[in-house]
């Protein structure tokens, strides 16, 4: 597993401090982040691949500072967004997965083999030539995840990947996440998604207020919002 380190990290939008002096070292396989709306979870998650840079402090992945090496780190960190519609670029399912690999300059046969393997893994083979924008919400999210994983990242960050899905699709996505060998950081309001995780971080007003195994951390969070 990689080591993701937040060293006295803060982030301000104008006058508002959204992330407030957070220090964390993340080495676990599966890490969950929970917290009320606006508590700074998305901002924190985005910092792991440099989509947001801290206004104070340092974020590093295996010692690489995001402020200077965002491009290198991004190659190793995949990001899954809440709304797959914003992430899908190409017209068909297969093309969208293949699109990720365009920057990797692989030989065409290798790229095609990797795309096929990922489509198969996520049960998208049958839909491969369908227009991506006409998939169901659950299928779109599977496609978004497949398009991230085809690049074989070391770390996958997902910001509320199941929020727009019904219970059944949310469970399917959760199962896929559980089967990933990659290091995983998931922001979620679906607390049951995080129960099998190794560590759960609870955010409140930009600060980490609990950081523990899932059971005690989620209990602390439930007490907080009760």
């Amino acid at each position: 597993m990689s080591q993701i380190a937040f060293d006295h990290v803060s982030h301000r939008f104008d006058a508002e401090t959204v992330v407030d002096d957070v220090s964390l070292v993340l080495r676990e396989h599966r890490i969950g982040i929970v917290g009320a709306n606006g508590s700074g979870k998305s901002t924190l998650a985005r910092m792991v691949n440099g989509l947001v840079l801290p206004t104070a402090g340092r974020v590093t992945v295996d010692g690489l500072d995001l402020a200077r090496h965002a491009r290198e780190v991004r190659r190793r960190v995949g990001f899954v967004f809440t709304n797959a519609d914003n992430q899908i670029v190409m017209p068909t399912v297969r093309e969208d997965v293949a699109f990720t690999l365009r920057r990797h300059k692989l030989p065409a046969t290798d790229a095609a083999a990797r795309v096929d393997a990922v489509l198969d893994r996520f049960g998208l083979t049958e839909l491969a030539d369908r227009p991506a924008h006409r998939l169901s919400g659950g299928q779109k999210q599977l496609l978004a995840i497949a398009s991230v994983l085809v690049a074989e990242p070391d770390i996958v960050v997902a910001d509320e990947p199941t929020t727009l899905l019904d219970a059944r699709n949310a469970r399917r996505i959760a199962e896929h996440f559980a089967s990933l060998e990659q290091q995983l950081i998931v922001v979620s309001h679906h607390l049951e998604l995080l129960e099998g995780f190794d560590r759960v971080i609870v955010m409140e007003a930009g600060r980490v207020v609990a950081d523990d195994a899932p059971r005690p951390a989620l209990d602390a969070y439930r007490a907080l919002i009760a």
């Binding site: 491009r71 991004r74 190659r75 995949g78 967004f81 992430q87 699109f99 990720t100 920057r103 991230v148």
Partner: peptide, 17 residues
């Protein structure tokens, strides 16, 4: 807003120059 999100997603997918 969609353009914004799409840009961000492209950056995350490594198309960031």
């Amino acid at each position: 807003r969609t353009a914004d999100h799409l840009g961000e997603a492209l950056t995350a997918r490594g198309f960031d120059d």
